[in-house]
Simulated scan of single mutants.
Amino acid sequence: MVAMSDSDLSSEAKCGEVLRDYLASVDKTMLERLVIDAIREHRCLLESDQLLHEEWQRAATSPSVPQEHAEALRAHCLDRQQATAAQQEVLSYMLNLLGYIPNVPTD
């Protein structure tokens, strides 16, 4: 994992502020649509993260898979977990703003 520099952290904080300001300014109807989209995205991320994790586990236990490949899958899996956790934080913030969990129609 690569450590973030102070300027990277500052830039990330500014992006977070801009996103919070934007979300606080949209009307409830638009916010509900954004939340539904974010819930769907989160579900897709969780599904793909699970598949990647299973692939990594298979590779890690298979003697025919080079260890470098298994380690690359492990690193990718950890990166994806961090990205999914960040998306979860945004979704949680959006849900708090909305004040309820909307009904998400199945596709």
Rank of each mutant, 00 (worst) to 15 (best):
N96W: 02
Y93L: 15
D27Q: 03
N96F: 09
D8I: 02
I36M: 04
L46R: 09
T84H: 05
T84C: 04
L98N: 02
R33N: 10
S5Y: 00
D27T: 04
G16H: 04
E54M: 10
K14W: 10
H69I: 13
A72K: 07
Q57Y: 04
A3P: 07
E68K: 10
Q57V: 13
Y93R: 08
G16V: 02
N103T: 14
I39S: 04
E89F: 01
R80D: 13
S62M: 11
R80V: 09
Y93F: 15
D21S: 15
Q87K: 09
R43K: 15
N103F: 15
A13E: 07
A72Y: 02
S64T: 14
A60C: 06
R43A: 14
Q67C: 06
M4G: 01
T106L: 13
E47C: 11
Q82E: 15
G16I: 02
N103R: 09
C44Y: 11
D21C: 13
H69E: 13
L98G: 03
E47F: 14
V65Q: 04
E54W: 05
V65D: 00
V26N: 04
Q57K: 12
L34S: 01
H42A: 12
D8Q: 14
S11Y: 07
L95P: 00
S64I: 13
L23M: 15
R80M: 11
R74G: 05
L95M: 12
V26A: 03
T84N: 03
W56M: 13
A38P: 01
P105H: 11
T106A: 14
L45A: 10
A70Y: 01
M4R: 08
G16K: 07
V90S: 08
E17Q: 12
E54S: 11
M4P: 03
D107T: 07
Q67E: 14
S5H: 00
Q81N: 06
V104Q: 07
K14P: 00
L91T: 06
A13Q: 05
E68Y: 04
V2L: 08
L97R: 08
S48K: 03
T84W: 00
C44K: 07
A85W: 03
R80Q: 12
L34K: 05
A75R: 05
M94R: 01
P63K: 12
D37M: 08
H42N: 15
V26F: 01
M4E: 13
N103Q: 11
K28V: 15
H76G: 05
A72P: 00
A83L: 14
A38K: 12
H42P: 02
L46K: 11
E71V: 10
A83S: 13
A72D: 07
A75C: 02
G16P: 01
E12G: 04
H69Y: 10
E89Q: 13
A38T: 10
A83Y: 09
L78P: 00
E32F: 03
D8R: 04
V26Q: 01
E12P: 00
A83V: 13
E89S: 11
V2Y: 06
R58H: 14
L31S: 01
D21T: 15
D107M: 06
V2C: 01
S64G: 05
S10E: 09
S25G: 06
L23V: 10
E71H: 05
A83H: 10
A85I: 03
L91Q: 01
I39D: 12
E41Q: 13
V90I: 15
S25W: 03
D79S: 08
L31G: 02
C77R: 15
A86S: 14
C15H: 11
S5L: 06
V26T: 07
E54R: 11
L91D: 04
